Amino acid sequence: MNNWNQVLTQEQESLGATQLATGFVAAVTDQGLIAFTGEESASFLHSQLTNDVEHLGPGDVRLAGYCSPKGRLLASFLMWRTDESIFLQLPRAIQPAVQKRLQMFILRAKTKPADVSEQFVTLGIGGGDAEAMLQNWFDALPAKPFSKLDHPLGTLLRVADAFGAARYLWLTSPETASVAAPVLKERLAVGGNEGWRLSEIHAGIPQVGPGTQEQFVPQMVNFELLGGVNFKKGCYPGQEIVARSQYLGKLKRRTALASIADAAAAPGAEVFSPADPEQPCGMVVNTARNGTGGVDALVEMKLEALEAGDVRFGSASGPALQFKPLPYVLDKLDV
């Protein structure tokens, strides 16, 4: 019998919005996973991350950021817990350095981080057909975005909706994935990392990676709008700057969803406004091929450029960004 990898990675497609909205499955292989285990794991992470970890419940899934002392994001995580561990999912490309940095601050705290990326197969499933497909294995599904359930067949996380439909991450064993993969492939479009990233972009979920570390205060990438920042918790690195941006109304930048007719657009690339052609007005946060020869992207930029509606990729004479609606409202902070 073919294993899950052969079934779901040999025929990956460059999916478009229509396929994602209908139903898709993606082998998510570019994400790493850190497990913190020990009785003081929650209190340690609570002191390091932008979100509340001490009150993270067994059915909760949350976004969280890890900032430099200057309040700039070094990493962004999807976070959940079991009875034994707290898990942080982030790009594999930055996981070793981020894990090492966190470990430096553990000191005497009773917690130990471990790279558990290879212990699970991660399948991303979404679109209108997702729920019916998952009911082949699960009697019940997480009822709302950012919730989870644990099951003998693995952990099922419901993440942010996209295209008006639910999306799930199923962390399971290679054996279970090998049984499920042919069934999923028969009914759903197969997308891989690129398809999953495209669905994340249309859900408005930013992810900090190699090209964008230390570039953004959390609010610049809409992180607090997604529940990724808790302003009532105690201190963490950069907390004063993050709070000042929130309460003193100093933030003049936000992240928007747009299509760019240039397949070379990548995280960290700059965008420009013709009104001020000499200086970049923003930066690309995340991209994924959209099936039309270009990319869809989350792009951080000055609010005045976003409001003007004319933003170009690469230079003031580059291709114009075609803006699309986000699934949530941008609460502008330029007061």
Rank of each mutant, 00 (worst) to 15 (best):
Q48E: 15
F272I: 05
N222M: 09
R108L: 01
L330F: 08
F313L: 03
I94M: 03
H202D: 11
A305R: 10
G192V: 00
D30G: 01
L226Y: 01
A64K: 02
V335K: 14
Q135N: 14
T37L: 06
A308E: 14
R92Y: 00
K324W: 12
S245F: 04
V299Y: 09
A26L: 03
W80T: 03
I125Y: 09
T292S: 15
N136S: 15
G57W: 07
R101Q: 13
P96L: 06
E186F: 04
G209D: 09
S85K: 13
S199P: 02
G128E: 14
Q119A: 14
M220K: 09
R312G: 02
T155M: 07
L107C: 00
Q12T: 14
V7C: 04
F272D: 04
T37Y: 01
L78T: 07
K100Q: 15
A132K: 13
V121G: 08
L73D: 10
L123W: 09
R289D: 13
F231G: 05
D115I: 00
E270V: 07
A42M: 04
L102D: 02
Q6F: 03
M79D: 02
V159Y: 12
L33W: 03
I125M: 10
A243W: 08
L330M: 13
E40D: 13
M1V: 09
V28W: 05
L78Q: 13
A27P: 08
E13G: 00
S68A: 13
G154Y: 05
G127I: 02
L225H: 11
Y247R: 13
I86F: 04
E175L: 00
R92Q: 15
H46C: 05
I260W: 10
V98S: 08
K302T: 14
R289F: 01
V121D: 11
W196D: 03
D30P: 04
S259A: 15
L90M: 08
S315A: 12
G38K: 07
W4C: 03
D310M: 05
G228W: 13
G291I: 02
V335N: 13
G209M: 11
R62T: 08
V221Y: 05
V98A: 11
A143P: 08
A265K: 08
R167N: 06
F163D: 12
K70S: 14
E54W: 10
G192A: 07
V28I: 12
E300V: 09
P58H: 01
I201W: 12
N290D: 15
V98D: 05
L251C: 13
Q19W: 03
S273N: 06
A132G: 07
W170V: 06
T122I: 01
N2K: 14
E11Q: 15
G23V: 05
A132F: 08
G127W: 10
E54M: 08
L45C: 00
R72N: 11
A275Q: 15
L123V: 08
L303A: 09
N193H: 03
Q31I: 12
G164R: 11
P274L: 07
P218H: 05
M301Y: 05
R254D: 07
Q19I: 04
Q48Y: 00
M133A: 01
L90V: 11
R92L: 14
T292A: 15
V329Q: 12
P152Y: 01
